[in-house]
């Protein structure tokens, strides 16, 4: 039973690594479908928290996500298995390309370049979809909807410093902490007044 989970973890992330074009963000749709909906290994809300951890740490986002999910399910061994699953497909494929194919061969092949012309806009759609599904999981309402909008637009602006994602991770963490402490204190005061 336990071995089975290691194998299915490896296979799930192998599949994710082998079919994800366009980097970590495009992977989120596929990871969500595999991990949350198909295997039901973690809930949608937990997935969002793990995503925040993976995003807050440096490194390759896709690998980080696989590490936190593997660790969450089966500790260190689970995280190693998941990370290997994510890394192996691209490692093997790129190594073969580096050895046998030059970049020009691919660019000058008409069929391959038209296939990729079709794939690229689909990849963008795969990144738009999790914006909406994670917004629901994060329980975004009219009071908080400005946070993702402002974050997205300022990062998009490419202005120095304030377009850096790290800025927003730090601000979000600080803001959330301050808001939570205030709310808890408020609740304690309100409780005391009721007791009186």
């Amino acid at each position: 039973m336990m071995n089975n989970l290691y194998i299915s973890l490896f296979l799930a992330f192998f599949k994710i690594g082998a079919f994800t074009f366009g980097g970590g963000w495009a992977m989120i749709s596929i990871i969500e479908r595999e991990i949350v909906e198909k295997h039901k290994w973690i809930s949608k809300a937990d997935f969002l928290d793990l995503l925040a951890v993976a995003q807050a740490m440096p490194g390759i986002l896709a690998v980080n996500i696989s590490v936190v999910i593997g660790d969450n399910l089966r500790g260190l061994r689970g995280s190693i298995v998941s990370a290997l699953g994510t890394i192996l497909p691209s490692f093997v494929m790129i190594l073969c390309i580096a050895i046998f194919l030059t970049p020009d061969d691919i660019k000058n092949n008409e069929l391959i370049s038209s296939i990729f012309k079709g794939i690229r806009p689909a990849v963008v759609a795969l990144i738009v979809a999790p914006v909406l599904t994670t917004a629901r999981a994060a329980k975004i309402n009219w009071k908080t909807v400005w946070i993702p909008i402002v974050t997205a637009l300022l990062i998009y602006s490419k202005l120095p410093f304030i377009s850096n994602p790290i800025t927003f991770i730090i601000l979000g963490a600080l803001g959330g902490y301050i808001y939570y402490i205030k709310r808890v204190n408020g609740a304690i005061h309100a409780g005391k007044e009721v007791e009186k």
Binding site: A52, V131, T134, V145, I147, V150, A152, P165, A173
Partner: peptide
């Protein structure tokens, strides 16, 4: 605090 920010990062 991080949850809405992560949504913004994906956007």
């Amino acid at each position: 605090g991080l949850r809405p920010v992560v949504v913004g990062l994906i956007a």
